[in-house]
């Protein structure tokens, strides 16, 4: 196992891809923490699915597979999707969850139609575009990696700089406005960063599953701490670990897409956290409630006269 790992790490290509996916997981985990706390987990998923038509249209217009152009296209279609959700919730009686469901499937449907069209167009350049569905880290070129790493680094830097502001607006946006912070602009910025982090990861993890890298590490990190700073860092680490695991396993096994492996790694971390985390974990909670019950039974025994004698007989002080 270690030999296998060492062998892979000597390959400079793999090292680069590993580095990129580490940064990607880190950035997604950090931004995802804020999405999670603002109860917008599903929005990340909607934005990811909505990026597919944007990517396809960029390709159809330019005829080249350029990550930069894809990012622009994905951000634009992500913005149209957000606008769509906003319009539906505002002008109809439909609530946000249903609006997101409608927009997500509609955009993904358009994306699939466009992608099928591209694949049958006979354009030689199109090979590999289908990898955007489930991600293929191994298919990434150096410029793609640079792009992904730069975007993730930028996300992390902004989150450090604006940590106080993001915290305030995630906890109590009304109060933030009262203090004079442009809460709406900060919320828009967080949304924009979510789009960017989703799009940056699309090639590595795929549009279908990238949202998991946003949500699952944050949900896992929440189990371990009561402090936002620690949660954000932990979510980043969980994301980085999942990204790295996904990349390594999918590089080692041919034809295995990166996305599913990354998601499975993140989910394993989540299950471990949900079970074993002290305080909030399922096992810790069960132990606490058992202790409370047994303490109560003992106390009752101490209070009731007929049981008192038996307790006293066994030499226990009440």
């Amino acid at each position: 196992m270690l030999n296998w790992l060492a062998g892979m790490l000597t390959d400079p290509n793999v090292r680069w891809i590993l580095f990129g996916s580490l940064l990607l997981g880190l950035g997604n985990g950090v931004i995802g923490s804020f999405s999670y706390l603002r109860k917008q987990s599903l929005l990340g998923d909607t934005l990811a699915h909505a990026s597919l038509p944007g990517i396809c249209i960029s390709f159809m217009l330019s005829g080249v597979k350029s990550v930069g152009l894809f990012v622009v296209g994905a951000i634009l279609s992500g913005m149209v999707a957000t606008f769509g959700i906003h319009a539906i919730t505002r002008y109809t009686r439909i609530k946000q969850d249903a609006a997101m469901g409608i927009v997500l499937s509609f955009f993904f449907g358009i994306g699939i139609v466009l992608m099928t069209h591209i694949q049958h167009s006979g354009n030689g350049n199109q090979s590999g575009l289908d990898k955007y569905m489930f991600g293929q880290a191994a298919s990434m070129m150096k410029p793609d990696l640079y792009m992904m790493a730069a975007v993730s680094a930028g996300l992390i830097l902004l989150s450090i700089l604006l940590f106080k502001e993001f915290k305030l607006v995630s906890f109590d946006p009304g109060y933030a406005r009262g203090l004079g912070y442009p809460a709406a602009a900060l919320e828009q910025l967080l949304l924009f960063l979510t789009v960017v982090s989703v799009v940056a990861g699309v090639q590595a993890v795929g549009v279908v599953l990238i949202a998991a890298l946003l949500i699952t590490p944050a949900a896992a990190a929440r189990y371990w701490t009561h402090r936002l700073g620690v949660m954000v860092v932990l979510a980043g680490l969980f994301g980085a670990l999942s990204g790295a695991a996904g990349t390594l396993v999918s590089s080692a096994l041919d034809n295995l897409p990166t996305g599913p492996v990354t998601v499975l790694s993140a989910t394993s971390l989540f299950v471990l956290s949900a079970l074993f985390a002290p305080g909030r974990g399922v096992i810790a909670k069960a132990l606490v409630s058992r202790k409370v019950k047994s303490d109560y039974v003992l106390q009752q025994a101490g209070n009731s006269p007929e049981l008192q004698t038996t307790v006293k007989a066994s030499g226990e002080e009440v």
Binding site: K164, F171, G174, L228
Partner: peptide, 24 residues
């Protein structure tokens, strides 16, 4: 604000919330 306007399961402690009063 009204107490119900925020999610109290937010990962933070009492002093931290009070210090938000200084953010402005």
């Amino acid at each position: 604000p009204q107490r119900e306007s925020v999610d109290w399961d937010f990962p933070t402690n009492a002093l931290d919330v009070v210090m938000m009063g200084r953010y402005g």
